[in-house]
Design a protein around this nucleic acid. Sequence first.
DNA 1: CTTTATATTTAAGCCAGGTTAAATATCAGG
DNA 2: CCTGATATTTAACCTGGCTTAAATATAAAG
Lengths: 150, 150
Amino acid sequence: MPCTTDELKETLQAWVALFMRRSMEHMLLFIKENNLSMSQMGALMNIHRQGMCNVSDIGDELGITSAAASQMLERLVQQALVERTEDPNDRRVKQIALTDKAARIIHENFRRQHAWLGELAASFTPAEQEQVQATLRLLLEKMRQVDGRR
Amino acid sequence: MPCTTDELKETLQAWVALFMRRSMEHMLLFIKENNLSMSQMGALMNIHRQGMCNVSDIGDELGITSAAASQMLERLVQQALVERTEDPNDRRVKQIALTDKAARIIHENFRRQHAWLGELAASFTPAEQEQVQATLRLLLEKMRQVDGRR
DNA sequence: CTTTATATTTAAGCCAGGTTAAATATCAGG
DNA sequence: CCTGATATTTAACCTGGCTTAAATATAAAG
């Protein structure tokens, strides 16, 4: 049967809703297990994405003042999740990096999500896997295009 | 070319990551616009999903004590987002419902996500739309199965 | 060397959102 | 009509996370 753009939109919506709820659940459980707050997890993910960066970078990225970023980082340092080292080129700035502990936590978060997705991936027949693979690649490409247009 | 379960898992992972980031961004912007906190948005979404419910239901669902739920609801009532009415069958319990204002906010949130998805859906050729539609339906079905097994 | 700009921290204060414990009101069973 | 269970609220308190303003330290320019 032919399908309309609107129908596809609705299917996408259903898919997104289910995925978001599932992922959110997973995330909330995970941060509770690791005694983190949502903000802290956000900060850690941010540092992970940015790689080496300084205090104000993080503030900018999180949309808070650098004073707030400084305080948040201080709490993370106290929990041994973040390392602050002086930048040898400019001693005003502190270089921020995840500790091994934090890296392990982030990694474990990804791993578990991966495990869930693995279960999903394995539930398809080989023929279906081909189909899903091809379609998702298409979707990804288009999403990046739509994303890029902003 | 044939693809392995692992490859599919990775494609799924990439898709989820992109989607999550995109949706999170959207959500954070939206709640800022509406002067809500993440928790408050969560609570409103929850009430929206549950429909009519009482104070402790919400506490249970959010994983907080009913005292905390009571206080959170009080703040939402003050912002005219929630209505508290006495249950005529049991005058100990309060029935909680979204006000029109809150319903409009939730609806607007969905509408915008829809708009973004519409843009995505429209970017496919009719043939691609068929393919994506079919595959997503398959994915949804399998996800619900995997979800159901817990 | 002095001035000005920049990066970070510290201090003081605010509010959201959580807890436990006690207060209040109602229901339901003997 | 008591008594005990249940639903909600209130009180007292704590913490995280934010703000602004001031303090500190360093860099960079004249």
